[in-house]
Amino acid sequence: MRQMLAVLTVVATLIGLWYLACIPMNMQGVLVEAERAGAEVSPPDAAVRREMGGVSLALRNGFAVPATWAQERPRLPAPHQVAVELWDTTVMKKITSKRSLVYHGWVTLSATLLGFGIGTVLGVLLAVGIVHSRVMDMSVMPWAIVSQTIPIIALAPMIIVVLYSVGVQGIIPKAVISAYLSFFPVVVGMVKGLRSPDAMQLDLLRTYSASKGETFWKLRLPASMPYLFASLKIGIAASLVGAIVGELPTGAVSGLGARLLAGSYYGQTVQIWSALFGAAILAACLVGLLGLIEKTVLKRMGMA
């Protein structure tokens, strides 16, 4: 109960700060509209106002404060505006509608899951190779690290162009970008996990003359499970980011990335923010789901 209260207090504080931030952010625009509507604003000269900060304008035009939370195209939409937009575009729209966030979310989610699957399989395979072969350890690991230093936003268009030129388009390029981001945490986590058994446990298997395969299946793999799940949680969030980024440079017409892009083209800040929150909620659900699977699996294994 106390914990609940603490959580709610933090959330309420954040929302309060958000409302406060809306006032100076949106004041300029609100005053322009108010002046057009014939209201008396201070100072009356638009050129002077443009030079002034949002806070001082708010202090001189207290009457305009409520309007900063109700603009049609605010610089910073208020929380309830985002919430209403989210509600309208998820629950109130048919999910087949091009304006439904569920529809766009599914487009992104399918690429995310495909990319996550590819990235996880690739990551696990690379980790197995790295743990068992010194050559792979020395040749693959540095490239895996270098691959993550290239900004994905720079790489994504190239991946899409290259794949398009060989006739691959649609969900695959997005999934590739998403796999590109998600394989890395899986590699790092799995290498660590597969190496987690200590010398004594490896010696024990040696006394049984166990093969490399038996050591892998009976010791290394089960021992790596907690590490794998930690990596998967990072990996799936990275996958979602990858899928969204993959939608940006193509001018895609559907997907959460497309919603972000369209929103910014037309100055639809409310749409941008609701797409952002849609993505965040989706990521939270995915990570939560993985957490649930983790708990079940580890409990079954007697490790939780």
């Binding site: 004594m200 446990q201 010696d203 024990l204 006394t207 010791l219 294994m301 007697g302 490790m303």
Partner: peptide
């Protein structure tokens, strides 16, 4: 059969 200093039982 070899017995080590730690039991080294697999927790899973």
């Amino acid at each position: 059969g070899y017995v080590f200093q730690a039991a080294g039982l697999y927790p899973w």
